[in-house]
Design a protein around this nucleic acid. Structure first.
Lengths: 114, 114
DNA sequence: TCTATAATTCGAAATATGTCGAAGTATGAA
DNA sequence: TTCATACTTCGACATATTTCGAATTATAGA
């Protein structure tokens, strides 16, 4: 990536897909849970607290399991979260790199015309 | 704002509205234009280049004027852009503070549970 | 005042999204 | 093998979004 291309690594179409995934309040809430280290009533442990099962993520959000599944699939499709089966459960987490990628869009420094 | 509340200033509902506004490729493109200082073929001037008329913003984007107007209204409603009539034209721009606000959501540092 | 330019508002139509329940798949345990 | 738990897929339906053209408003200039 040359210095002229800047850090706007993700193209606008891809970025729009990510924003669409985050545009639904339920999905944004799910994503936010995965970003949050300090779950209420627990000791904060960065290595493990950022991984949640599908079922855990749905707790407190009043939607059907099928709807929950659909929303997580959308977040995954947009590249915002990772999912991997671990026995009966499916684990979800956010790769820190994606946060950096999206965050860079809102950095005014080093922007280019497009 | 206490140190425990962190810089997640904007609540999730408001944030979801912003992401919805940015989820449409046409709107994201319009917003991106307003973020971009260096318009092709022009000399970069931060003070003025970040202000565009509605008509200028629509150039090169193949949508009807009424659709353009609708999209800008949505961006404005979400709080992402400012609009102000200047004679026959309506000027649009982005307040840098909003970029900082949204960008902070993607900063892992100092996040809180919600 | 009349006309031209810039932009918005208002329906209407096509398409997309969010949601559920029923049925299906994957895994672990008795 | 049988059952229970965790999650997903499918089909259906209600609601929301995108888009346009026609009509309307705002402003500047002849």
């Amino acid at each position: 990536m040359s210095k002229y291309e800047s850090d706007l690594a993700t193209d606008l179409e891809t970025l729009a897909e990510m924003f669409k995934a985050l545009s639904n309040p339920h999905r944004l809430s799910l994503f936010n849970r995965l970003l949050t280290c300090c779950v209420p009533g627990t000791v904060c442990d960065v290595d493990t607290a950022t991984h949640f099962n599908v079922g855990q993520l749905g707790e407190g959000i009043d939607i059907a399991p099928s709807t929950l599944s659909h929303h997580l699939k959308e977040l995954n499709r947009a590249g915002l979260i990772q999912m991997q089966r671990k026995g009966q459960q499916v684990e979800c987490w956010v790769e820190p790199s994606i946060l950096k990628e999206i965050g860079s869009f809102f950095n005014q420094k080093n922007r280019i015309s497009k």
